[in-house]
């Protein structure tokens, strides 16, 4: 006696035999290929958006929250009234900065750091004939802004000639630049999604035209718009998911490479690639660990997002097309 087919097999047979022949309406090569290409572009644009966002945050919260103070003749004792005569000008400024409201860290560059800073102009020889000014970094606590003008006035009473360079101006400019790049990247993502929608809609319409006779026939027999649109949409969603997955995998090495190039700007520590790539799970884990967390999440969401876009676009396209039938 022949074995009775399972429930899923029978359900699948019934779906296949409704005459729509979706494998012919929506071929399983073209759509995944197009979606994969769109997914790679989307992944690159999203990587740009994520990178710009990280840089923006770093420049706004990092460099922008620091003041650089130059104290000329740092070892000369202070002469200003009201200060302790034993202190040098640099020590007096350091003491004043330590008391500044919102200051999280005050650091005077030592001789080696100063030498490294000036090396491009003065060479590697750190025995300078000239007396160099003291360079002090004042780091402000997160969320606090230093009043550079008031601070400059106060420091000049302690050590006349002290200069303050406000990094926030550069930080704000760089932040604005990063924000613009972020907006451009999001616009690129929107354009990619738009093109994907147009491509899926065109492919679906071609499929509808190719299967017009069976569609009209089953519609005349009582198939609802929801049934026909659902059959097309599920097929498109599956193909788009496969395309999205392929696109994510293809984009991964490019993103890892970009991430490594951008690491010094984002202060991320690049994870070394294992010498042996025999363990693919380990390799994938290592590659994903190289990327910023938001980008990994975006990459993982790419295939489901492609499927959702495919499903929604096909539903809308098929339902609009069916409106031409009574």
């Amino acid at each position: 006696m022949a074995e009775r087919p399972g429930l899923f097999t029978r359900w699948n047979q019934a779906r296949r035999a409704d005459g729509l022949a979706l494998r012919r309406a929506l071929p399983d090569r073209l759509l995944p290929l197009l979606v994969a290409a769109m997914a790679v572009l989307a992944a690159l644009a999203l990587a740009g958006a994520t990178g710009a966002q990280i840089l923006s945050a770093r420049w706004s919260n990092g460099a922008a929250s620091m003041l650089t103070i130059q104290v000329p003749d740092p070892e000369t004792p202070t002469t200003t009234a009201g200060t302790t005569a034993h202190l040098t000008r640099s020590d007096a400024v350091l003491a004043a900065l330590a008391d500044s409201p919102g200051a999280s860290r005050v650091h005077r560059l030592d001789k080696a750091e100063l030498g490294a800073l000036l090396a491009p102009w003065l060479g590697q020889d750190h025995d300078f004939a000239l007396t160099l000014p003291a360079i002090i970094e004042l780091h402000m606590a997160t969320g606090t802004q230093a009043d550079a003008t008031a601070l400059a006035r106060r420091l000049n009473t302690i050590a006349p000639g002290t200069l303050i360079e406000r990094n926030a101006e550069w930080g704000e400019r760089l932040g604005r630049l990063a924000d613009s790049l972020h907006s451009c990247a999001l616009l690129a993502v929107a354009i990619v999604v738009g093109i994907a929608v147009v491509l899926i809609a065109a492919t679906t319409r071609a499929g509808l035209a190719a299967r017009r006779l069976p569609i009209e026939l089953i519609h005349a027999m009582g198939a609802t718009d929801g049934y026909i649109a659902g059959r097309f949409a599920r097929r498109t969603a599956l193909l788009a998911f496969i395309g999205g997955l392929a696109g994510s995998v293809l984009a991964l090495p490019i993103l890892v490479l970009l991430s490594r190039v951008a690491a010094p700007f984002a202060a991320a520590t690049p994870t070394p690639t294992p010498a042996s790539s025999a363990d693919w799970t380990m390799l994938a884990h290592t590659l994903l660990a190289t990327l910023p967390t938001p980008l990994v999440a975006t990459l993982l969401a790419l295939a489901p997002a492609a499927a959702l876009i495919g499903w929604l676009t096909t539903q809308a396209t098929v339902r609009a097309w069916l409106r031409n039938l009574p």
């Binding site: 019934a14 035999a17 409704d18 005459g19 026939l217 519609h219 027999m221 009582g222 049934y227």
Partner: peptide, 29 residues
């Protein structure tokens, strides 16, 4: 429409479905 049966003059059978599946269409819908 599911409660209506139609015999068309030109038959309107789906050429790529076997006879069995052509006849089964109304029941499957």
């Amino acid at each position: 429409r599911r409660r209506i049966g139609v015999v068309h003059q030109d038959f309107r059978l789906l050429p790529d479905l076997p006879v069995f599946d052509n006849i089964a269409l109304p029941l499957r819908l």
